[in-house]
C-alpha cells in the first residue's frame, strides 16, 4: 500500500461516511461555490472531493456547457486540488502555463485554465477531503485577503459537510 495520503483507505472511508459521493446536489454547497466565484470574480468554482484516481465534483459554479459539468470529475493527475491533500495547505497557481507541473496539464493546454486558488476542506477527524477552489481563464494574482476569504467559505462548507456524516456504518462493511 502507498504512504501517499491520496491513497489512504481511511481518508476514502471518511469521504464515503460524509456522503460526499451522493448524486444529490446540495444547494448550500452550491451556494458556497457560487459565493467563492463571485467574491474572487472568477468564472468557475468547485467543491472538489479528491479520490484516489479521480477528482469528484461535489458542488460547482460555472460548469454549465463544459465537459466537466457532464463527467462530474476528471483524472486525479490533472487535479490542482490533489496538492492540498498532500500538503494540507492552500495551493495557488497564478500562471498555469508557467507552472512546472501544470504547464502540461490538459486542463491548461486543451481547456484554457490559467489560474487556480484552492484551500483544503479538512474534516473534524483530520482528513483532507478535497478543496474549495476557484479557477480562471486568465493569469491572475491572488491576495492573502482573497485566500482568507476562501478559507472562511471552506469552513462553512466543512460545517455543512459534517452535518451529512453517515452515523451508522454497516458492521460487516470492509473499510
Amino acid at each position: 500500500m502507498s504512504a501517499d495520503p491520496l491513497y489512504a483507505a481511511q481518508r476514502l472511508q471518511e469521504i464515503v461516511d460524509l456522503d460526499l459521493l451522493s448524486s444529490e446536489v446540495d444547494p448550500i454547497l452550491q451556494d458556497v461555490a457560487a459565493r467563492a466565484a463571485a467574491h474572487l470574480s472568477l468564472p468557475v468554482s468547485l467543491i472538489s472531493v479528491v479520490l484516489d484516481e479521480a477528482l469528484h465534483v461535489a458542488a460547482s459554479h460555472g460548469l454549465d456547457g463544459l465537459w466537466l459539468g457532464e463527467t462530474g470529475g476528471h483524472p486525479v493527475e490533472w487535479s490542482f486540488c490533489a496538492t492540498s491533500v498532500r500538503t494540507r495547505e492552500a495551493f495557488v497557481v497564478e500562471s498555469a502555463v508557467n507552472d512546472p507541473y501544470h504547464s502540461t496539464n490538459p486542463l491548461v493546454v486543451q481547456d484554457g485554465v490559467r489560474c487556480y486558488a484552492g484551500v483544503p476542506l479538512i474534516s473534524s477527524r483530520g482528513f483532507v477531503l478535497g478543496n474549495l477552489c476557484v479557477v480562471g481563464l486568465q493569469e491572475r494574482q491572488f491576495t492573502e485577503m482573497e485566500i482568507d476569504a476562501l478559507r472562511e467559505l471552506a469552513a462553512s462548507a466543512v460545517q455543512r459537510i459534517e452535518a451529512r456524516r453517515v452515523r451508522s456504518v454497516e458492521p460487516t462493511e470492509r473499510s
Binding site: 483507505a9 481511511q10 476514502l12 472511508q13 469521504i15 464515503v16 459521493l21 479520490l51 484516489d52 484516481e53 479521480a54 477528482l55 469528484h56 463527467t71 462530474g72 470529475g73 476528471h74 483524472p75 486525479v76 456504518v169 454497516e170 462493511e173 470492509r174 473499510s175
Partner: peptide, 14 residues
C-alpha cells in the same frame, strides 16, 4: 461500500 466505493467512483469518473 466503504472506501471500495470511492475507488469504484474513481474508475467510473475516469
Amino acid at each position: 461500500g466503504g472506501a471500495t466505493a470511492a475507488v469504484a467512483r474513481s474508475i467510473l469518473i475516469r
